[in-house]
Simulated assay, not measured.
Amino acid sequence: MNSKKFATQVIHSGDQAVQQTNPIFPPITTASTFVQPNIGEFGDFNYSRCDNPTRSAYESALAELEGGVYATATASGMAATALALELFPADSHAIVMSSVYGGTHRLFETLRSRTSGMSFSYVDLNDLAAVEACIQPNTQFIWIETPTNPLLELVDIEAVCQLAKQRELVSIVDNTFSTAWNQQPLALGADIVMLSTSKYIGGHSDLIGGALIAADKALAQQLDRCKTTVGAIASPFDSYLALRGLKTLDIRMERQSSNALKVAQWLEQQPTIEQVYYPGLETHPQHALCLKQMRTGGAVVSVRLKGDEEAVKQFVGKLQYFMLAESLGGVESMINHAATMSHAGVPEAEREKMGIYYQTLRLSVGIEDADDLIADLEQALNS
């Protein structure tokens, strides 16, 4: 049986067998090192920075779900992003989606450009002519984020990856907001997928983690060598939690995305809302692209409120079910204020150039009843 549906894959993907004791779920193996039979003789595991049974089971599941040949689980999503950069020479140039996540922008601009001489050009990746114009002799990769955080702009993955292959560039896709449940970048031509597994993979707001998944063996070997050298690995406990969370990814994403569409449709009718950002809405300028490469519009809805800063604070302060918190993707609904949270490190002028204002809010829609979530938003907007 080679054609497992996604709902079956999340339960049975990868190599999760533990032959010695035959448990139904891989246990947490906390050992830092493993006994060798003799000099020059090695077992499946030798040192946990290189490989660990719990992490290996989790990584094999991620690789299968994303359609890759290899996955490495890291200590955080930012650790995964930083690890991906280790693949490239110090003076490399990269082309990056213009509205990239604030943490990624911070890593690129305040750290890597200063410490390793890397340079980055930010452009709307849907403008292929602009992408072509940015390519330099030392350009090594294109960093794609789709949907973007927090304005949910989409990138045509297939088109950009095709261009990257023509110019012999590596294409890396941040698939955090979608996961393999909603879109599969490797099947659309991407070379590497990056995930912040703290979000939908774990799904319960109880772990920090990241992952990189490679499409081919050559990249897999390079990533594995970098991972072992740098040691940017997920702990056995976080790997265990993430694999446990992964089991319910299908049913969680289905409920959360369904709720998000209902919330977005309701918000679109409210006079106190300046703009709703949700690719699942027919009014979204990239709705056709959403239908082309995504299963649904996802589980995140962003809005721009009317009113001043005080109006924004009053609205957020009245919410009962949408909790003000960093991150997203948990079973509980959360609200994020981009200007002071996810994009706090981006200068105000640059934020507003991206279209992110003080009035911009990102809603991570949970698995609660959609009517209750809408009622919560209604009382906060109108009371």
Results as ranks from 00 to 15, higher is better:
317 G>Q: 10
318 K>Q: 09
318 K>F: 03
318 K>C: 01
319 L>V: 10
320 Q>F: 00
320 Q>Y: 01
320 Q>I: 13
320 Q>C: 13
320 Q>R: 14
321 Y>E: 12
321 Y>R: 15
321 Y>S: 13
321 Y>Q: 15
322 F>M: 11
322 F>I: 08
322 F>P: 05
322 F>L: 12
322 F>Y: 09
322 F>N: 05
323 M>V: 15
323 M>R: 14
324 L>A: 13
324 L>S: 09
324 L>Y: 03
324 L>V: 10
324 L>T: 07
325 A>D: 07
325 A>L: 11
326 E>T: 13
326 E>L: 14
327 S>Q: 02
327 S>H: 01
328 L>Y: 02
328 L>H: 05
328 L>Q: 01
328 L>A: 08
329 G>C: 00
329 G>W: 02
329 G>A: 08
330 G>T: 07
331 V>G: 00
331 V>F: 02
332 E>S: 14
332 E>A: 14
333 S>A: 10
333 S>G: 11
334 M>C: 11
334 M>L: 15
335 I>Q: 00
335 I>L: 08
335 I>Y: 02
336 N>Q: 11
336 N>V: 12
336 N>S: 12
336 N>F: 00
337 H>N: 07
337 H>I: 14
337 H>V: 13
338 A>T: 03
338 A>E: 01
338 A>V: 06
339 A>H: 07
339 A>C: 14
339 A>D: 05
340 T>I: 14
340 T>C: 05
340 T>E: 09
340 T>P: 01
340 T>K: 12
341 M>P: 04
342 S>G: 04
342 S>K: 05
343 H>T: 08
343 H>W: 05
343 H>R: 11
343 H>D: 09
343 H>F: 05
344 A>L: 11
344 A>P: 06
344 A>W: 03
344 A>F: 00
344 A>V: 13
345 G>N: 12
345 G>R: 08
345 G>K: 11
346 V>R: 04
346 V>L: 09
346 V>E: 00
347 P>T: 08
347 P>L: 11
347 P>F: 04
347 P>W: 04
347 P>I: 11
348 E>Q: 14
348 E>N: 10
349 A>C: 09
349 A>N: 10
349 A>M: 11
349 A>Y: 01
350 E>F: 03
350 E>T: 14
351 R>Y: 07
352 E>Q: 15
352 E>N: 12
352 E>A: 12
352 E>I: 13
352 E>P: 00
352 E>G: 10
353 K>S: 13
353 K>D: 06
353 K>N: 10
353 K>F: 02
353 K>I: 08
354 M>P: 00
354 M>Q: 13
354 M>R: 13
355 G>Y: 00
355 G>K: 02
355 G>P: 04
